[in-house]
């Protein structure tokens, strides 16, 4: 076909069902992007904390006092945790063929979500 293709394509993502494994994969990418973008910030904070005893306690104080600081830390933790767990699921599938049936794939995706929730909850209580 040489002329421009003007034919419509049905690709409205809101109308197409997304099974749990697909959702898990998209969140893996989003969490990866967030963690990647936040990495310079974390390195910067880490370098401040290493400068001196005062800078360390200053940061510690800020963390204790500013709720925003805690919320950002919590969200980054959840993102990183989810990314690691969902990445492990992919490694298990690629390396050992674990979770390559529909049933086991779904099950492991649920386990990833469940573990993320539980560990995040524990972390939330810890920093509260």
């Amino acid at each position: 076909m040489t002329e421009k293709d003007n034919r419509p394509v049905n690709l409205n993502l809101l109308t197409i069902s997304l099974p749990i494994i697909g959702l898990s994969s998209i969140l893996h990418r989003i969490s990866g992007l967030i963690v990647f973008l936040a990495f310079p910030l974390l390195v910067w904070l880490f370098s401040i904390s290493l400068e001196s005893e005062e800078s360390f306690s200053y940061l510690q104080n800020q963390f204790q006092q500013l709720l925003v600081f805690k919320i950002i830390t919590f969200l980054l933790f959840v993102g990183f945790l989810y990314h690691v767990l969902a990445g492990t699921r992919k490694l298990l599938a690629d390396g050992f063929g674990i979770g390559e049936t529909l049933h086991s794939g779904k099950l492991i995706s649920w386990v990833v979500f469940g573990l993320t929730f539980l560990i995040s909850l524990a972390f939330f209580i810890l920093i509260l």
């Binding site: 494994i21 898990s24 994969s25 690629d94 390559e100 049936t101």
Partner: peptide, 18 residues
Amino acid sequence: HGIMNCVSVCPKGLNPTE
């Protein structure tokens, strides 16, 4: 990337991911 939409829709119950 192994999201297995293919497996979940196959009307013949096949597993392209595998």
